[in-house]
């Protein structure tokens, strides 16, 4: 269920943009998804196929590009992706601080057809 309401929001953004551009069809939608958000591209595609029936975006492929969360070491300042079950810097063992990278969730671009 996590993706259902987000997919409704994606479709609204896509339909608005398609109307602005005078698109007759939307064939692909590119998303950027930070892994901290927990959104799953396959699940978004599943809901999108259902919600987009009868719209300009019916049949569009949803391509998700994932972004690994990055942390910054409080001691040495190094940036790193954390290991499983660890919040320690791989360089010096210092404590990890979140950077905001990994929380992305936006529509990057889309492919359209025009008459």
């Amino acid at each position: 269920m996590h993706e259902a309401s987000a997919t409704e929001a994606i479709l609204a953004i896509v339909e608005r943009k398609a109307a602005e551009c005078g698109a007759s069809r939307v064939t692909a939608i590119r998303l950027t998804v930070g892994e901290l958000t927990g959104y799953v591209g396959d699940s978004i595609q599943f809901y999108f196929d259902r919600f987009s029936r009868g719209t300009v975006a019916e049949g569009a492929v949803v391509e998700s590009t994932y972004v690994k969360p990055l942390y910054q070491c409080a001691a040495c300042g190094a940036r790193f992706a954390r290991e499983r079950y660890s919040f320690s810097c791989p360089t010096c063992g210092g404590d990890a601080l979140p950077t905001g990278i990994g929380r992305e969730f936006y529509v990057e671009s889309m492919e359209i057809e025009k008459e």
Binding site: I10, K17, S109, E113
Partner: peptide, 16 residues
């Protein structure tokens, strides 16, 4: 005609 358009829109923007 096929073309690529930039969207760059936060998905939860309206909600937020």
């Amino acid at each position: 005609m096929r073309t690529s358009v930039d969207v760059k829109t936060e998905i939860l923007r309206d909600h937020d």
